[in-house]
């Protein structure tokens, strides 16, 4: 067990190195010039040359990569061409909002997906009216869902806000939901929830279906397993059979799919944040793309990629905990 955890963490570190190498190489071939970004376009050629030397841009690539890694470890992701601030401080400002949105949305996805799976596997009456539309929505591009949601729930019904987080946070954690509780501000807490619902649900629908489908098929195959027949022949109540024998043996595949989807959500958040003007790093990335702000793009890719890799490593470890056959 411990050996597996250690090996899994080691492979996560290798993956991070590869990710940084890819970003570094892309940075090297990207057209933007970090020196001019730093000094401004009007800097004299001599100043530029001196700065290039100082930044180590004339060194061989491996040396530059080591320097790049060292900088990363010190939290230095370079300068944003657009904001002329350090990418790290930009990201630090925007990251909490993204994590908050994705976390809430992931919970939505789990709830929607579980209802989808359970209602299908147990053949709840009328559940087709839930599953059918959800299936269709899951094939829609997220931007269409977001825009449709805005038109219906904001413009037509005026039920939900369509832009931003509703408030800025000045609290200790940077997470609006938590800070508003810490600072004893239930009003802001409620406003924050209102603002989370639309982007959260839009972001949740595709993962909900992906998780729900896997969970449903593994529920269905577990329901036909011999040991469930054994449990039924013990005369256990239906819900006891499900709770003790079916669920645990079904969640393995759904768990790894959920991890995968959580990772995907950190990528999918970009479009949603942009449409809802959500002050997160997805929005930051979306705004950096039109102006080709490569350091910013690279920074976001690194941060979200790191989260993705860590999430998947954690899910793998959780899966071995859930199934005793997997741990040696």
């Amino acid at each position: 067990m411990t050996r597996f955890v250690v090996r899994r963490l080691a492979s996560a570190v290798v993956l991070l190195l590869v990710l940084t190498a890819i970003i570094f190489l892309l940075q090297a071939v990207s057209p933007g010039d970090p020196v001019k970004a730093f000094l401004g376009n009007n800097a004299s050629p001599a100043a530029v040359a001196a700065e290039r030397q100082a930044l180590g841009l004339n060194d061989p690539l491996p040396v530059q990569y080591l320097q790049f890694l060292t900088n990363l470890l010190h939290g230095d992701l370079g300068m944003s061409f657009r904001s002329h601030r350090s990418v790290t401080s930009d990201l630090a400002a925007f990251l909490p909002a993204t994590i908050e949105l994705v976390t809430v949305s992931f919970v939505f996805a789990l709830i929607l997906g579980t209802i989808f799976a359970v209602s299908g596997a147990l053949r709840w009456r009328g559940s087709a009216f839930y599953r059918g539309p959800l299936l269709v929505l899951a094939t829609a591009p997220p931007f269409l869902l977001a825009l449709g949601g805005i038109v219906i729930f904001y413009a037509q019904l005026s039920w939900l806000p369509a832009s931003g987080q509703g408030a800025d946070t000045t609290g200790p954690t940077g997470f609006l939901l938590i800070d508003s509780i810490v600072t004893g501000d239930p009003g802001t807490w409620g406003v924050a929830w209102q603002h989370l619902i639309l982007p959260g649900v839009v972001l949740a629908i595709a993962p909900a279906i992906a998780i729900g489908r896997i969970l449903r098929s593994s529920l269905e195959s577990t329901l036909q397993a011999d040991f469930v027949r054994t449990a039924e022949s013990k005369g256990l109540k239906g819900h006891v059979v499900i709770a003790r024998h079916v669920i645990r043996n079904s969640i393995g595949p759904a768990l790894s799919m959920a991890g995968l989807q959580l990772g995907f959500m950190f990528a999918g958040v970009v479009v949603v944040e942009q449409i809802f003007s959500w002050p997160g790093i997805g929005n930051y990335l979306a705004n950096s793309i039109p102006v080709s702000d490569f350091p910013a793009i690279a920074g976001v890719t690194l941060v979200l990629g790191t989260i993705y890799i860590i999430v998947n490593a954690i899910v793998d470890v959780l899966q071995t905990l859930a199934d005793p056959r997997l741990s040696a």
């Binding site: 040991f227 022949s233 005369g235 256990l236 024998h245 043996n249 005793p324 056959r325």
Partner: peptide
């Protein structure tokens, strides 16, 4: 009836027992 009056042994004990319990 299954609880009080019936017991059962199936062919393959590997698949007939819950692997995670």
């Amino acid at each position: 009836v299954r609880r009080d009056e019936l017991g059962v042994i199936f062919q393959d004990p590997m698949t007939s027992l819950n692997p995670t319990m």
